[in-house]
């Protein structure tokens, strides 16, 4: 069963043709990696899935994106509801300049969940799922800005899962982190995939092989190849994929 289906997606910023005829199916409760050289459109693609590109002037798209069978760019779709179901973790950890508790509770608050007990319970659950609870449980009222980069990124993941999305989009979540924090995030992804559908953009091909079931290789806005991760890396069908993963360019 596919959670997200993208059909003939073309994206333009002003005149620039960024994504070209992308087709991809993302099955439920799996991890899908998007790899490719810088500027190939991976981030644009992932940001199209929760309509974050709507904020950028000059954005235009053709083709369809279905989330649970429903086209997300239809006029009657509530973007707020969509983003609640399709959460996002960004490249640079971006906690709010608020306390740890308020960061995780933020999503609940904006969706009208104010009951103190419910909020506290959800915050604890989310921080536990994000493997951060033990490190922060005694300082929930301290500023999130005092956490390390890796902790901040896990806090951002906790903040995202607190509103119980169905999909988590991760845009190079480990690129600003050290190896130990990266391992922690990867372990977390393994744990989260049981409940969530995860799409992750990564520059690190080892990371793609470690965490994902499927991988798509982007080049110049096209999806050159898509398939099972082990197959894509062991026996790529396209010459360009082989060149990229063996390090001949990019």
């Amino acid at each position: 069963m596919n959670r997200i289906e993208v059909e003939n997606l073309n994206v333009y910023f002003e005149e620039a043709h960024i994504l070209k005829d992308n087709n991809i199916k993302i099955p439920k409760n799996t991890v899908t990696s998007l790899i490719g050289p810088s500027g190939c459109g991976k981030s644009t693609f992932i940001r199209t899935l929760n309509r974050m590109n709507d904020l950028i002037s000059g954005f235009r798209k053709e083709g369809s994106i279905f989330f649970d069978g429903k086209e997300i760019y239809e006029p009657d779709v509530d973007v707020v509801e969509l983003r609640k179901k399709v959460g996002m973790v960004f490249q640079k950890p971006n906690p709010f300049p608020k306390s740890i508790l308020d960061n995780v509770a933020y999503g609940l608050k904006v969706h009208g969940i104010n009951d103190k007990d419910v909020v506290e319970e959800r915050v604890e659950e989310s921080l536990k799922s994000a493997a951060l609870w033990d490190e922060v449980k005694d300082k929930l009222d301290k500023s999130a800005m005092g956490l390390s980069g890796g902790q901040q990124q896990r806090l951002c993941i906790a903040r995202t899962i607190a509103i119980e999305p169905e999909v988590i989009l991760m845009d190079e979540p480990c690129s600003a982190l050290d190896p130990i924090s990266t391992t922690k995030i990867e372990d977390l992804i393994h744990k989260l995939k049981k409940e969530y559908t995860i799409v992750i953009v990564t520059h690190n091909m080892q990371q793609a092989t470690r965490v994902s079931k499927h991988t798509a290789f982007f080049l110049h806005g096209e999806i050159v190849e898509i398939g099972r991760t082990d197959k894509l890396f062991m026996e790529p069908e396209d010459k360009r994929t082989e060149d990229y993963i063996t390090g001949r360019f990019g």
Partner: peptide, 8 residues
Amino acid sequence: EASLALGA
């Protein structure tokens, strides 16, 4: 961006 992505 973070706030909007959370559905605010």
